[in-house]
């Protein structure tokens, strides 16, 4: 067993034991922090997987929320219609073995559906470059949202309820660990060097005999799979879905995390996901305490402005991302100017 695989198993066991021993305690006593913890996990998965496309492969996708929506609605429909039949779970309550098995299956289904969507979008559109790809992926995200708005069996604009809250710390952070593991192993493997060559110089890569489209589609499908898994976690935690939750701005949120973390830097992106999920909530928390003098309370009441300001300051002081090696970011900037 290689060392990285050992680390993966160790991390999964750790997640499982924390979930097994601490889940109920945290969820019942610190529900608010628990909520934020799960949101952090979902955002890490979204950002790390998008980083494979936007950071390592150098493509610019703006449709991640679309894949998340596919996953969320797929897992919600699966759970709504098939859980009672397969696992005998009625209204989300069943024995832990059944709910966890149901969660696993619905996550897999969500990931698979999102990956299929990723393949369907990727094959035709990844022949495009730069801005054009961004436009196509943006369009895809909107198509998904509008399609859901018009599909009555998915609740349309009313929204869709998902019985039961299956999502727990194990599934969330297990997926986080798996996602990071898959992305890192891919990029650091012999095969995965192909992603980096596509980013660094597409013409040279083709001259070397690398099938660049194949690499781009591979990155896209893997990213879509994990976005789907994140959607499943989100669906089974929030227990209610509306198409508006997966609009263009949700995609931009993820892109912001990736850029802030440093394109092509997994550790940076993970930290950025944690930071950008906590920051708005921390500002919310500060607004009602006496830590902040009354004169500054007006700032906190406009916390969204403050949040945006902090983002701008971070971007000005750390344009290469929190931890990033700046190459990917500069490369992307340079390329979009050249196109």
């Amino acid at each position: 067993m290689s060392r990285s695989l050992l680390n993966l198993v160790f991390a999964l066991v750790l997640c499982a034991s924390i979930s097994f021993f601490g889940e109920n305690f945290i969820a019942s006593n610190f529900a608010y922090y628990y909520d934020i913890l799960i949101s952090i996990g979902v955002n890490i998965i979204l950002a790390t997987s998008l980083n494979l496309v936007n950071g390592y492969t150098g493509q610019f996708s703006l449709g991640h929320a679309g894949f998340m929506a596919v996953g969320a609605y797929a897992s919600a429909s699966w759970s709504n219609h098939l859980d009672p039949i397969i696992f005998g779970i009625v209204n989300g309550s069943g024995n832990p073995v059944a709910t966890n098995a149901a969660m696993f299956v619905s996550m897999l289904f969500a990931g698979a559906m999102a990956a299929i969507a990723g393949f369907a979008v990727g094959v035709p559109s990844l022949r495009l470059k730069g801005d054009y790809l961004a436009i196509v992926t943006l369009g895809f995200g909107e198509i998904i949202r509008v399609a859901i708005l018009n599909l009555d069996f998915l609740g349309a604009s009313r929204g869709l309820s998902v019985p039961g809250t299956y999502t727990n710390l194990f599934w969330t952070y297990g997926s986080v660990v798996l996602c990071i593991y898959v992305v890192l192993s891919l990029v650091h493997s012999t095969y995965g060097r192909g992603f980096l060559t596509v980013r660094d110089d597409e013409v040279a890569a083709e001259a070397m005999g690398i099938n660049t489209t194949k690499y781009k589609v591979a990155a896209f499908v893997v990213a879509a799979f994990f976005a789907g898994v994140a959607g499943a976690l989100y669906a089974h935690f929030k227990a209610f879905l509306t198409p508006e939750g997966f609009n263009f701005f949700r995609s931009v949120d993820v892109v912001v995390i990736v850029i802030l973390g440093g394109m092509g830097s997994t550790i940076g992106v993970v930290f950025a996901a944690v930071l950008l999920t906590i920051l708005p909530e921390a500002l919310r928390g500060l607004a009602h305490t006496e830590f902040v003098p009354a004169a500054y309370q007006v700032l906190l009441e406009n916390r969204l402005i403050l949040y945006s300001l902090l983002l701008i300051i971070l971007m000005l002081t750390r344009p290469q991302g929190l931890f990033g090696d700046g190459t990917a970011f500069k490369k992307w900037l340079g390329r979009s100017r050249a196109d």
Binding site: F30, Y32, G245
Partner: peptide
């Protein structure tokens, strides 16, 4: 909740457990 789905559940959790 910024008219954003996903926020209300976080806020209600904050209300019932923190506040």
């Amino acid at each position: 909740n910024q008219s954003q789905p996903g926020q209300t559940s976080t806020i209600v959790r904050k209300f019932v457990t923190q506040d």
